[in-house]
């Protein structure tokens, strides 16, 4: 498996996309620190990148990459290697390269300007979201044989998690505003990795005081060790579940 990871990894470096991605993140993070000296405000601005740009790039890039390396995968399958090994190898190579790109691009400027706990949480959220959306991209890729269709599905995933779901949530809160919604909205938020990461970050940024009772309830939950463990577990489920579904489909698929 290590050899597969190595090959895929080198292949990705050769496309130069990863290098560009790293450079983009590095330059924009660095520029934000130059414009604003307040580290907390920079983290706020970076939050937008982490919540929107990173899922989008992760999911689209991974889908394209999967189809570009289709021939390589087919070649590998002709060898006496387990399908699962090939698939997991592909996944790990893509995830590690994207995560490394993110950590270098955003992490180095953050560490140069002094890393606070908030910034570290942001990096953690970024890595988790990258991993989750790569999983979703693999799921989109194995669902169909057609590249354009797969990219469409991938984009739909992204739209769903960063826009449509929030619209639904807003409608839900509006429709049931007469009821105590704290526990239900908490559950609903856990059903969307982007929202979950955003709420974790918001509570870090101490905006919770604005959120009144809801905020106090959330802070209580996410502040407790049970909340930290639970939210991490849920975020990890968002990586594992789409990936295991796609793995199952891939192992049975007629290529």
């Amino acid at each position: 498996m290590n050899r597969i990871i190595k090959y895929v990894f080198y292949d990705m470096l050769r496309t130069r996309f990863i290098v560009l991605y790293t450079a983009l993140l590095f330059v924009s993070t660095f520029a934000m620190f130059q414009i604003d000296s307040d580290a907390d405000k920079v983290v706020m601005s970076l939050l937008n990148i982490v919540l929107m740009v990173i899922p989008l790039i992760s999911i689209v890039f991974t889908t394209i990459h999967f189809y570009n390396s289709y021939e390589f995968i087919e070649l590998m399958l002709a060898q006496p290697i387990d399908r699962k090994v090939i698939f997991i190898g592909e996944y790990l190579a893509v995830v590690s390269s994207l995560c490394i790109a993110f950590l270098i691009g955003c992490g180095i400027p953050i560490f140069l300007h002094g890393a606070s706990f908030t910034a570290l949480t942001l990096l953690f959220c970024g890595v988790i979201l990258t991993m989750g959306f790569v999983s979703l991209a693999f799921l989109a890729s194995v669902l169909t044989r057609d590249k354009a269709k797969a990219i469409g599905i991938a984009l739909l995933f992204w739209f769903y998690f960063s826009l449509i779901y929030d619209g639904f949530l807003l409608w839900f809160v509006y429709a049931f505003s007469d009821y105590p919604l704290e526990k239900i909205t908490l559950t609903l938020i856990a059903l969307n990795p982007v929202d979950l990461a955003r709420v974790i970050m918001l509570l870090q940024l101490d905006i919770s005081a604005l959120m009144g009772y809801t905020g106090a309830f959330y802070k209580d939950f996410f502040g407790s060790s049970l909340g930290v463990v639970l939210s991490t577990v849920v975020l990890c489920l968002w990586i594992i579940i789409p990936f295991s579904i796609s793995l199952r489909i891939f192992s049975k698929k007629d290529l």
Binding site: M44, L47, N48, L51, M52, S162, L163, D166, G167, L169, L170, V173, Y174, S177, L181, E182, T185, I189, V194, D195, R198, V199, L202, I207, L210, M211, G212, Y213, T214, G215, Y218
Partner: peptide
């Protein structure tokens, strides 16, 4: 304005939807 009417909607603050 939305938050003033439904305080619990504040949990969507800083999401892409709210920005739009």
């Amino acid at each position: 304005m939305v938050v003033e009417q439904m305080p619990s909607a504040v949990l969507l603050w800083r999401s892409f939807l709210v920005l739009l």
